[in-house]
């Protein structure tokens, strides 16, 4: 055994015991954990709204910009499609398509985030305005932080895309950042429905 160990310099290749590859599974589990984090914020939101809540929600005189946020939702949803386009493009070996898709996704995501910040400054209440303000900023802020993280990951993928990485055979960097981005989008639909529409 000792002589054998001298001869070889790297680890033995681990046996792959699942059809899912490790990075994808890791991202999915991370997303499960993220969903639970959102779950804790939803819990406190419904406690404040249903259990301890005032008769009217949102409590007067506050009201929510449902329409602007709806437009913003559309923007974020569109970015999921451009992300999908980027992944499909590189799967066919179309490097320019991937780059365009990534840049568009980044631009749409950034637009969403800036609109959200703009909304904060004009919405007419602050996190200090009752449990209503706290839970509103809590949920949308937590989501905003996730958009920021998603954009950071996408920026890295974009940098790599422009530096000549990713091929039709090896594009996990795009695929996995895409999974996270789709999660951020789907989560926004839940947040938007809960906070603005319900």
């Amino acid at each position: 055994m000792a002589a054998h160990a001298e001869a070889h310099h790297g680890p033995p290749i681990a046996h792959q015991s699942s059809r899912v590859d490790a990075p994808t599974l890791g991202m999915l589990l991370f997303i499960a954990s993220e969903i639970m984090l959102f779950g804790s914020f939803f819990t406190i939101y419904f406690f404040a709204r249903v259990v301890a809540g005032p008769d009217q929600w949102p409590p007067p005189p506050f009201h929510l910009p449902v329409f602007v946020a709806g437009i913003n939702t559309a923007i974020l949803l569109t970015s999921s499609f451009t992300m999908h386009w980027a992944l499909q493009a590189i799967k066919r070996g179309n490097r320019a398509g991937m780059q365009a898709g990534l840049v568009l996704t980044l631009a749409l995501g950034l637009t969403f985030l800036l609109t959200q910040i703009r909304e904060y400054s004009r919405v007419g209440f602050s996190p200090q305005d009752g449990a209503f303000g706290s839970t509103f900023y809590g949920l949308t802020g937590l989501h905003g932080a996730h958009v920021f993280v998603g954009l950071t990951i996408l920026t890295f993928a974009t940098i790599r895309a422009f530096r000549g990485h990713f091929t039709a055979a090896e594009h996990r960097g795009v695929e996995i950042s895409g999974i996270y981005w789709h999660f951020v989008d789907v989560m926004w639909i839940v947040v938007y429905t809960t906070v603005y529409i319900l």
């Binding site: 406190i44 406690f47 404040a48 809540g53 005032p54 996190p127 009752g130 449990a131 706290s134 809590g138």
Partner: peptide, 11 residues
């Protein structure tokens, strides 16, 4: 914020 502040209808 008022997540747990009873006076501001926190829970």
């Amino acid at each position: 914020t008022n997540f747990f502040n009873f006076h501001e209808s926190g829970y």
